[in-house]
């Protein structure tokens, strides 16, 4: 049995029941992105427009691959939770629920696609001997 009273368990969790978890996630991911985004913009911007073999060679290297993976993982989760906040401001009821699901789904799909693409590029890079 729990020794905590019902009131004690509820205090600090607010209407959402999760306290400041959402806001704190946005804060932590934002700080991470402060470092990741400039690196990613440089890597992606330099690779864009190059021939396919050079693009694969770029993303097969550890630093560009890891920065890209982290930028999309953290960036898309940051997006999903931010979009959720916008949706909760402007929509209600079923529309809100479906829109929130769509935003989170989109973020996971894009993360998975990037991981898949990076994995393939690393393997092609190995085969090419990069």
């Amino acid at each position: 049995m729990s020794y905590l009273t019902d009131r004690k368990r509820a205090v600090g969790k607010g209407a959402s029941g999760t306290g400041t978890e959402h806001h704190w996630f946005m804060t932590v991911s934002a700080v991470g992105l402060v470092f990741l985004v400039p690196c990613f913009v440089f890597i992606f911007g330099s690779a864009l427009g190059k021939p396919q073999a050079e693009v694969i060679a770029t993303f097969a290297r550890p630093f560009p691959a890891i920065v890209t993976a982290l930028t999309f993982l953290i960036g898309m989760r940051h997006f999903a939770k931010g979009a959720q906040m916008m949706i909760e401001d402007y929509c209600q009821g079923l529309t809100r629920k479906l829109a929130v699901m769509f935003a989170h789904g989109l973020s996971y799909v894009l993360i998975a696609c990037v991981f898949y693409a990076l994995g393939r590029m690393v393997l092609i890079g190995l085969a090419m001997g990069v």
């Binding site: 694969i56 990037v114 898949y116």
Partner: peptide
């Protein structure tokens, strides 16, 4: 768009 391009590169 960025993901589309990265996928296409493979």
């Amino acid at each position: 768009l960025a993901v589309w391009w990265l996928m296409a590169a493979t």
